[in-house]
Design a protein around this nucleic acid. Structure first.
Lengths: 109, 109
DNA sequence: TCAATGTGCAACCGCTTGGTTGCACGTTGC
DNA sequence: GCAACGTGCAACCAAGCGGTTGCACATTGA
């Protein structure tokens, strides 16, 4: 799976977005601590963190018996890039349409 | 479902992102025409368009026996906003960490 | 008029996904 | 030493999702 696919898929779930937010707000944080602030099990949180990790949006570090999670938000740039790209294509098409219209105005059939 | 949830969920599927791209490139376009350029059925395309429409990323207009699809990319701004927000929170936390460090340097224990 | 075309609706299917529970294992601290 | 704690792994489950097929209906054009 391509990197950008993983990122968009990871952000596709609202719970996962909330977890990413919580991690950025209280990093380094543990899965158990996150579960305390969420209406789901620690195991569910761990699964979500796994998905986020595959998208390289968080990273884990084992410290003693705890696992500390930290955000690594660089991949979010891919999202911005993709959005900008689509928007740019659409803008370009609108410009071309405008050109056609003004061309017709200058040289009407 | 909140607007932003619908948008992220819609963009979560790679086929759907591709469809949105194709729509922006050749709007107004028909579901059948899109299916010709994709390895999936027209019905699958229609379903994807339905999801995109619920996220207000495309709009449909019936013209005779055809349905013309056009992109309405405004909701993409929500994505940018969310990304910027999370990134900003993280930046703020890093700044605060930096403050703590320099404070400790100024007045070491 | 009538065949061709584009569409919408509904049923169906396999697989993924978000979530849970149960349990075994390493770590910590009294 | 041993109980408490945090974690990881595995099995399981219902629901949703991406996709297909079949069919009926409206529109078009020769």
């Amino acid at each position: 799976m391509k990197r950008i696919d993983a990122v968009f898929a990871a952000l596709g779930d609202p719970t996962r977005r909330q977890i990413l937010r919580l991690v950025t707000e209280s990093a380094p944080v543990t899965a158990t601590a996150l579960a305390d602030r969420l209406p789901i099990t620690r195991q569910a949180v761990v699964k979500h963190l796994g998905v986020l990790q595959e998208a390289a949006l968080v990273s884990a570090e084992r410290v003693g018996r705890e696992t500390h999670w930290t955000p690594t938000l660089a991949p979010l740039a891919h999202v911005d890039t993709w959005v900008d790209d689509v928007a740019a294509r659409w803008d370009a098409r609108l410009d071309r349409l405008t050109d056609v219209v003004s061309e017709r105005r200058r040289a009407p059939r």
